[in-house]
Nucleic acid binder design. Structure first.
Lengths: 209, 209
DNA sequence: GTCTATATCGGGATAGAC
DNA sequence: GTCTATCCCGATATAGAC
């Protein structure tokens, strides 16, 4: 593996683990057992690393975001779609630890990040409207707006919350817990029998255990 | 007003506006038109200011937190209670911009903060159970857990989300928007007629406009 | 109580040898 | 490509005069 690549992967790990603000270029160099000067040869600085990682994230999640054919989406496919999105943000969680300060520090990423957040909320809104149109969910307009916003909010904020409460959740299970919370909140909106609701949840858990 | 007091108030304003990490002691001194040395005469450093502000916050919100007599609480009083809590966190929003890094930087506040968060979630849980026991809401155990967690999560994270999306919401209306989102999500759990639901929401809006 | 001046420290960044 | 040495700068903190 090339040094540049190693720098990116190690940075990502360290940023995710300790937060971007708490990791210096020297920290990364030490972890990789190379000199700071060498690191600066490959990337002009921390900003270059951050933007490279951010581009990786945007590419990855954009691909997932547009994937569902909303016209033929089932409820259980919807939750699976949410889960895949959650996982992709989890891989780059450092971005979500403090997005506001991050964007202020590296203004380059601001445009793309805000666009991504908005795309997600719009995608959720479109899907919810689709479900309403086929009577899979029962909700008025303000409720649908609220749900789309809620999902979007959970996506950007849930990991900080779990970090905060110090709930003894395995790192890898955080996305799953988030999805369960969303499922429980969405349940009463679903206009299907209770046993079908349980079936959906069972399908989700089986995929992810 | 004494200098020490002015330092606290100005710091609070600046931390809320720009984030604790982005405000230095010198910034505060300049804003107050005093010398950095003078500031250090009154507070040993940033940590002393932060902990003083944090203590103010904990005292204030603890008082609100224990106030409701959960046995005789009505639904509309419940939302009013949530609103008062939201407002008290909004006054000290800097704490919620990045609580994880804040606690790491100032470990003194960690215990009290985590305790406060947990108290809130427990209070919500108790109230929801109360409503369930008098059949005001229809929800199973996992749903009640999810709702308590959701409210707690919204409380700690909603302002960062609104900051992020850059929604053109007046600063003073952020708590209100958060409450509306919660109301819309909670609605289908309420086992009362639709016109009573609208009445509750009307009562809330009238109090806050 | 308040000021000026200064010491200290850590992160970001570069130059030049190998 | 990689290293060592070094510089710059901003934030924290203190000393001592007024």
């Amino acid at each position: 593996m090339k040094t540049a690549e190693k720098i990116l992967l190690t940075s990502l790990e360290m940023f995710n683990e300790h937060g971007e603000a708490n990791i210096t270029c020297v920290d990364i160099a030490i972890e990789l057992d190379i000199s700071p000067g060498n690191l600066y040869y490959h990337f002009k600085g921390k900003e270059a690393i951050i933007t490279a990682l951010f581009d990786m994230y945007v590419k990855r999640s954009s691909k997932i975001l547009v994937s569902p054919d909303s016209e033929s989406l089932s409820l259980s496919e919807f939750f699976h779609y949410l889960f895949r999105l959650l996982e992709s943000t989890h891989l780059f969680q450092f971005i979500y630890r403090n997005p506001n300060d991050l964007m202020q520090k590296y203004p380059t990423i601001e445009r793309n990040f805000k666009r991504l957040i908005n795309s997600k909320e719009e995608a959720f809104l479109a899907i919810l409207h689709h479900f309403k149109s086929i009577d899979a969910i029962a909700a008025n307009e303000s409720q649908i707006d609220a749900l789309a916003q809620l999902i979007s909010l959970m996506f950007t904020q849930y990991q900080n919350y779990f970090l905060l409460t110090g709930a003894d959740i395995e790192q890898d299970d955080v996305s799953f817990h988030c999805l369960r919370l969303l499922f429980n909140v969405l349940t009463p909106f679903l206009s299907i029998p209770n046993n079908e609701k349980s079936a959906i949840w069972l399908a989700i858990t089986e995929q992810n255990i």
